[in-house]
Design a binder for these strands. Structure first.
Lengths: 203, 203, 203, 203
DNA sequence: CATGAATGAGTATTCATTCAT
DNA sequence: CATGAATGAATACTCATTCAT
C-alpha cells in the first residue's frame, strides 16, 4: 500500500506537478468533507471531483478513514508550521497575540475550507490516535503560551482552557460568519476583531 | 403519518408520561446526532437507544430527515423562548448583555448536547426550508439587539455580523472546551467569561 | 381463529346486515387485489378501504394469504353456482353454449372486478391446495361439456383444452377490452360476441 | 447511471457476448416477474438468478421500476418488429389474418414467458408514460388493420375493440392453456386455432 | 500505475402481524 | 369484539472496497 513513486517531471518543465493525483484527491476530499461531512460524502464523489478513477484513491490511501486522517494531519501540521514559525517567545504578550491572530487570519482567509474542516473534525471517532496526538500537541503549545502570559500578569487570570476557548471560539465565529454569508473579511475587519479580543483577554 | 394520539394518563397521576416514545426517540436521536453526526447515525441505533422498535420511529416521523428537522426546530424554539422571554428592550445594553449571556449559559449548561446539536447542524443540507427560516428569524432578532445597541453607542461600531460572530463564537468555544474535557463550568467561570466578552464588545 | 359470531341485528331492523365487517373486508380486498395485485396491496390499505381497523382483519382471516384464498373460493364458487345452475345436460350444444355464455356475461358484467380477480390469480403460488382443487373441478366440468359435445359432433374436433382456451380467452378478452377502456358492454355486444364465438367452435 | 461500456469480443470470436450481465438481468427478471409478479419478486432474487451481485443491477437500471419498464419496452418492440415487419397492406384480409396469427404464434412459442409478461403487465401502475405510449401505438396499428378490413367488408362489422378483444383474448387463451399445462402446441394446433378464429371474425 | 465494473454488507424504510387496551 | 400502536423481518437501494484489464 505504498503510494506510487513520485513522478519526476520530464526535464524542460520547471517545477512540474508532483504527485498531482494525490493532491487532487486530498483537495477534492477536503472540500466535500466540509460541504457534506465525512459520512455524507461517497468515495466515488471524491474521485469524480478529483478527476480520477474511484480505484485510484485506494492506491494512495488505505481507506476512506485513512484519507480523512491524512487530510487532518496535513492541514493541522501546515497550520501549526505557518502560525507558530519563529514564535517570539520573549516578546510581550500583546505582540505575541497580534502575531498569532493575524497569522491565523491570514491562513484561514487563504484556506477557509481547510480551517472549517479542522473545526468540524475535532474529536470525531474516525480520527486515529496519531491525529488526536497531533491535535493535543498543538493545544499544549497554545496552552503554554497562555499560561506563561498569565504568569507575567499580561493576560487575565482564570482557567487557561476558558481563555483559549473564548479566543479560539471567537476566531471560529468570525470565520463562520463570513463563510456562511459568502463574504470575505477585509484586513480592517480582522484588525478590529483582533483589537476586540485583545481587550477581552488582556490583564 | 399523523403521530399516534396522546395517551391520557390514568386519573390519579398528574401530568403523566405522554407521548413517551416520541420523546424517547427525540432524545436518543439528539444524542446520537451529536456523537456521530447525521449520516454517521443509523436509524436502528436510534431505535435501540430509545428502547423502541425500528419501525416505531416511522410512526412518529416521516423519515430520518424529518426527525432531524423536528429536533432542530424543537430545540431552537425552546432555546429562543427561554433566552428571549420578556427581553428588556429598554434596559441598558450592559444589562441586556448580562441577561442574554447568563440565560444562554444556563440553558447550555442544562442542555449541552442540545446546544452542540444546534451548532453542528446549522446550514446542513438536510435541514428544510422551515428550519432555515426559523434559524433566520432568531438571527434577525439578535442582530436587531446589536444594531440598536450600536446606535446608542453602547457597543463598539463595526459590522454587526462580526460582533455577533465573536460573541456567539466565544460562547460556543466555552461550551465546547467544557464538553470536550467532560467538565462542567462553574457559575464563577460563566461570570468571568461574561465579563471578558462584555469588555470585548462594549463601546 | 374462529370468526366472530354473527351479529344479530337488533329487533326492529329488517334484514339487518350480518357479518358486515367480514363482507367489507372481502370487498375491499377484492378491489385492491385487482387494482394493485396481491403483493402490491398492504393489509392496512385493505383495512382502510373496508373502514375497519387493521387488527380486525385478523379476527376474520388467519393471514393475508388466507384472505386471498377466501376471496378466490368465494367468487369461484359463486360463479360456478350461477353459471352452472340447472345446466341442461340434454339440450343441444347450441343452446348450452348460449346459456353458458350469456350467464357468464351477466355475471361478469355485474361483477367485473371479481371476474378479473379470478383471471389474475389463477395458478399463483399463494393459492392453497383447496383453491387449486376447486379450480380444477370447475375446469373438469367445462371440459366434460366440451368433450361430450364433440362426441355428438356438434363442436369442432380438436384438443378440448384448445377449444376451451379459445372460448374462455376470447371471453376474457371481451371483458378486459371493456374494463380497460372504462366502458360497459351492451347486451347487443354480448350477443354479437356469442354469435361470433359459436361460429368459431361449432362443428 | 449510464450502463457500462460494451465489452468488445476478443478478435477471433465473431459476435461474442456483449453486455452479457445486462442481458442476464433482463432474462432473469422477465422469468421471475412472470412467475411471481412485480411486487412478489425481490431484487436480490433477480440478481441470484442472473448470477450477478445485487448491486450490479443498479449499474444497469436506475430502479426495479426502470427494470420492468425496460423489459416491457424491449419485448413489446421486438414483438412489434417481428409481427408487423413488411405487413402486406394490400393483401386480402384472409391472408393478413393468417400472417399475423402465425407470426404471433411463432414468436409466442419461442418466447412464451415474454408473451405472458406483456399480458400481465398491461396497464400496471409501475409502467411509465413511455411504456404506455408504446402500448398505445401498437394497439392503434392493430385497430387500423381491423377497421380497414371492416371497411372492405371482409371482417364482421361491430366495435373494433370487441373484435380485437376476441381475437387477442383467444390467442392468449391458447398460449395460457399450453403454458399452464406445460405442454407445447404443435403447428397443427396453431393452424386449427387460426382456422377457428378466422371463421369467427370473417364477414 | 490507473481504471471502473462488480460486489455484498449495510442503510433507510415498509408492512404483515400481534396484543394491550 | 375491535382497535391501532408497536414491532422486526424483509425489501429496495447505496457505497466502500476489490481486482481484472
Amino acid at each position: 500500500m505504498s503510494p506510487p513513486a513520485t513522478t519526476k517531471a520530464p526535464a524542460g518543465e520547471k517545477r512540474a506537478v508532483v504527485h498531482d493525483k494525490r493532491e487532487a484527491i486530498l483537495d477534492a476530499a477536503l472540500e466535500l468533507f466540509v460541504e457534506r461531512g465525512f459520512f455524507g460524502t461517497a468515495v466515488p464523489e471524491i474521485a469524480d471531483r478529483a478527476g480520477v478513477g474511484a480505484g485510484t484513491i485506494y492506491r494512495y490511501f488505505d481507506s476512506k478513514e485513512a484519507l480523512v486522517n491524512a487530510i487532518y494531519r496535513q492541514q493541522k501540521t501546515q497550520w501549526g508550521h505557518l502560525v507558530l514559525a519563529d514564535f517570539p517567545v520573549a516578546a510581550p504578550t500583546r505582540e505575541q497575540f497580534r502575531l498569532l491572530w493575524m497569522r491565523m487570519a491570514e491562513w484561514a482567509t487563504a484556506n477557509p475550507k481547510a480551517f472549517i474542516f479542522m473545526e468540524l473534525h475535532h474529536h470525531q471517532r474516525y480520527l486515529d490516535a496519531e491525529s488526536r496526538a497531533l491535535e493535543q500537541r498543538m493545544l499544549d503549545l497554545f496552552t503554554g503560551v497562555v499560561v506563561s502570559a498569565q504568569a507575567r500578569h499580561e493576560l487575565k487570570a482564570g482557567p487557561p482552557r476558558l481563555i483559549m476557548g473564548i479566543v479560539m471560539g471567537a476566531f471560529v465565529g468570525v470565520i463562520r460568519s463570513c463563510v456562511e454569508f459568502d463574504q470575505s473579511l477585509e484586513t480592517a475587519d480582522w484588525k478590529l476583531a483582533e483589537q476586540i479580543l485583545w481587550e477581552a483577554v488582556r490583564a
